[in-house]
């Protein structure tokens, strides 16, 4: 089956005042097949939010796509005009932002903010859009949609607000949902609820999703395939159970070890504390000539400083960008 979303060799630069451009995304290719969840793992500043905004054509003025293509259902999205892109946004590809407290307009009622999305894409009466908004609110698990419909954002809890944001994103039954850290701003028990809700809706509606997160737990439960991003490039890709169980790239391995997890009974704390990856993320305006992870890497080879490694496929369905695997 052809992929729903195909990104090929994407490169996005930001202009910054000090000389060279900031390379936020480079040589990035990925596929999201219909009805499938792809997880994108990476830390702040690795370019994952830039990627999502580029897909929707919402990059800030200072950013420029310098190379590559983004196809949705075979149609090139890069270079589309505002009116065409508006028809795609929310209707075919929608997005769930990280912080629902910021994603909702504080001075407007919830119902009108959900109905508005329907109204933007359907030639329906106000009445029908309102009914659709109510049924959408019920669909994301509100037992009393009418009360929520008439509420203001500040009257809801964080988890309730994120449900509303999900209702907005699904209101026009898009084929693809982009999710930017959908649980990061929530309490841990609420995180579990929202993870469960997203999983259930994805299965029920047959959604394709691209979930960006540094919550490995969320990715492990939602995504079948996982991509790991570092300094604007994909460094590893593969089946989620295998990437989490046997990470190949030194960065993926370091990241997984840094993750807090439930302690085993009787373990002393010294064994629980992970060895953090030394150093910090590189300055994207001054990337090294070689592999961007080389300065922090424990497994570095002499070749690492000369040029960035190429992508190789060391095993079935796995991709990695590292000299250890012949890059």
């Amino acid at each position: 089956m052809p992929a729903l979303l195909e990104v090929r060799d994407l490169a996005v630069h930001y202009a910054d005042g000090h000389g060279g451009p900031v390379v936020a995304v480079d040589e990035l290719s990925l596929d999201v097949p219909p009805g499938e969840v792809v997880g994108l793992l990476g830390e702040s500043g690795c370019g994952k939010s830039t990627l999502l905004l580029a897909i929707l054509g919402l990059l800030p003025r200072s950013a420029r796509v310098v190379n590559g293509s983004i196809r949705f259902r075979g149609r090139e999205l890069l270079g589309l005009g505002e009116p065409e892109l508006r028809g795609v946004r929310g209707a075919e590809v929608s997005i769930i932002f990280q912080d629902p407290a910021l994603a909702l307009n504080p001075v407007r009622r919830i119902g009108s903010q959900v109905a508005e999305v329907v109204q933007a894409h359907r030639r329906w009466s106000g009445r029908r859009c309102r009914d659709e908004a109510l049924s959408m609110l019920a669909e994301v698990g509100f037992p009393d949609p009418v009360r929520i419909h008439d509420s203001y954002p500040h009257e809801l809890s964080g988890g309730q607000r994120q449900r509303v944001v999900i209702a907005q994103a699904l209101a026009c039954r898009p084929a693809l949902v982009l999710a930017d850290e959908p649980t990061a701003s929530l309490d841990s028990t609420t995180q579990a609820e929202v993870r469960g809700l997203l999983g259930a809706l994805q299965r029920r509606l047959g959604l394709a999703m691209l979930v960006v997160s540094h919550d490995l737990g969320a990715l492990a439960t939602l995504a079948r395939r996982v991509l790991v991003m570092y300094a604007g490039r994909l460094v590893e890709a593969g089946d989620s159970a295998r990437v989490f169980g046997d990470p190949l790239h030194p960065y993926s391995r370091g990241l997984l070890q840094a993750l807090p997890r439930a302690p085993e009974p009787g373990s002393s704390r010294e064994r629980r504390v992970p060895s953090p990856i030394p150093g910090s993320s590189p300055d994207l305006a001054r990337l090294p000539a070689g592999c961007a992870f080389e300065p922090r890497c424990a497994d570095r080879l002499p070749a690492c400083v000369d040029r960035p490694p190429r992508e190789t496929r060391p095993a079935d369905g796995r991709q990695v960008r590292c000299f250890k695997y012949g890059g």
């Binding site: 490995l216 169980g245 997984l256 439930a262 009974p265």
Partner: peptide
């Protein structure tokens, strides 16, 4: 910490533990 995870006593503790997504160990 170890005891809380292995033998949680209060229902709310159990809810908090249930919310921790499980992950295959690397």
């Amino acid at each position: 910490v170890g005891r809380i995870f292995t033998e949680p006593r209060h229902p709310h503790t159990r809810a908090l533990i249930a919310a921790v997504a499980s992950l295959p160990a690397p």
